[in-house]
């Protein structure tokens, strides 16, 4: 399953809720304000690292990182994708859920 999260973990608990339902092998894509969660030194880093350690794949949308001046600070283990990569994640996973 592909989970899409677009909320900053500094403002809402959406990412935590998503990660509580992400199973091993699932993909989580961080877009819009959620990209901050994928950056080095962010307080949400422990949650993301725990998910990665549990076999969840974490991706972040590069154009959203670049817009927010955080492209140079992506945390270890998180994979950057562009919009084409976003589309590939949607087609490669049998189901998609947006955590609005």
């Amino acid at each position: 399953m592909l989970h899409i999260v677009n909320k900053s973990p500094g403002e809402r608990s959406t990412l935590a809720s998503c990660l509580a339902h992400a199973r091993p092998g699932h993909c989580v894509l961080l877009i819009e304000d959620a990209v901050y969660a994928a950056t080095k030194g962010h307080a949400a880093g422990a949650q993301v690292a725990k998910a990665l350690g549990g076999g969840v794949k974490v991706y972040v949308l590069t154009p959203d990182l670049e817009a927010r001046a955080r492209a140079g600070a992506v945390a270890e283990g998180v994979v950057q994708v562009d919009y084409r990569g976003f589309v590939d994640l949607v087609t490669q996973n049998p189901r998609v859920q947006s955590w609005l």
């Binding site: 677009n6 877009i31 819009e32 562009d82 919009y83 084409r84 976003f86 589309v87 590939d88 949607v90």
Partner: peptide
């Protein structure tokens, strides 16, 4: 909100990828 921009860019990329 950014959602309309994100949706548009997603649609464009999907079409470019042949979907």
């Amino acid at each position: 909100h950014q959602s309309s921009d994100s949706a548009y860019l997603f649609c464009k990329a999907a079409i470019e990828s042949g979907h």
